[in-house]
């Protein structure tokens, strides 16, 4: 009942609209052309109203002769949108990477025995691959020399040097990457550092590397 009421209401509004539009029509040669198009519009509106009632898909693909200009611009708009998305993703991933590096650095420096000089974080930065932004690898750079750090104006010794190592953690053999100085013997400090960072970020210990320089 409610549907029929709505249909009748719609038809009345359509007829009133048609009357209003007819009053707007120019007199003369043009009138019959405009009237014909208006008649078609009313047929469409009535079919639409009845189609709504019957839940019948009355609409086809409407040829968009009038929207041609905006259609032509669409690929360009989509292209520039993709470009902006890519740039923003790149910026976001860079910020995320630098924030993570700072976190790892702070975490690593809590291990007083290891003198951490830098951290590199590798994340999944390709947007089209699944797991975008996922942490892939953490490389911690340590120094063999004691690191000094300026804290509130005074020089403070943070940690001693750490030998380049190959570490056995939870049954995995972790080879320390060689860089500059070379690989040394495994050490408990480095093993602890790898374990802490790996556990903190829920990574496999293989994904955390310590490079001694």
């Amino acid at each position: 009942m409610e549907v029929i009421r709505s249909l009748v209401q719609n038809l009345i509004v359509i007829v009133i609209l048609a009357m209003l539009l007819e009053m707007l029509l120019p007199t003369g040669e043009m009138k019959k052309y405009v009237k014909m198009v208006m008649g078609l519009l009313i047929i469409v509106a009535v079919v639409q109203a009845v189609g709504d009632l019957a839940r019948w898909d009355y609409t086809g693909d409407l040829p968009s002769l009038v929207e041609k200009e905006s259609d032509a611009r669409l690929p360009g708009i989509i292209e520039s949108g993709k470009k902006i998305t890519g740039e923003q993703q790149e910026k976001a991933i860079e910020q995320y990477r630098s924030g993570l590096a700072k976190q790892v650095m702070a975490l690593a420096r809590m291990q007083k025995e290891a003198s951490v000089t830098g951290v590199e974080v590798i994340v999944q930065s390709r947007g089209d691959v699944s797991g975008f932004g996922k942490l892939k690898e953490i490389i911690i750079y340590t120094s063999t020399d004691p690191v000094t750090e300026a804290t509130e104006g005074k020089q403070e010794i943070v940690a001693g040097g750490v030998e380049p190592v190959t570490v056995q953690v939870e049954g995995h053999n972790i080879a320390a990457t060689q860089a500059g100085v070379g690989t040394g013997q495994p050490g408990k400090d480095v093993a602890g550092l790898i374990n802490t960072v790996a556990n903190f970020y829920n990574l496999n210990p293989e994904q955390v590397k310590v490079v001694c320089r």
């Binding site: 719609n10 509004v13 359509i14 609209l17 539009l21 707007l24 029509l25 120019p26 043009m30 009138k31 052309y33 405009v34 198009v37 208006m38 519009l41 469409v44 509106a45 639409q48 109203a49 709504d52 409407l62 009038v66």
Partner: peptide
């Protein structure tokens, strides 16, 4: 809007009336 007529159709009609005038 109340009759649920698409604005595409109405815009076309108004353009046609304008052209005719």
């Amino acid at each position: 809007d109340r009759a649920g007529i698409s604005m595409v159709y109405l815009g076309t009609i108004l353009k046609i009336v304008g052209i005719a005038y």
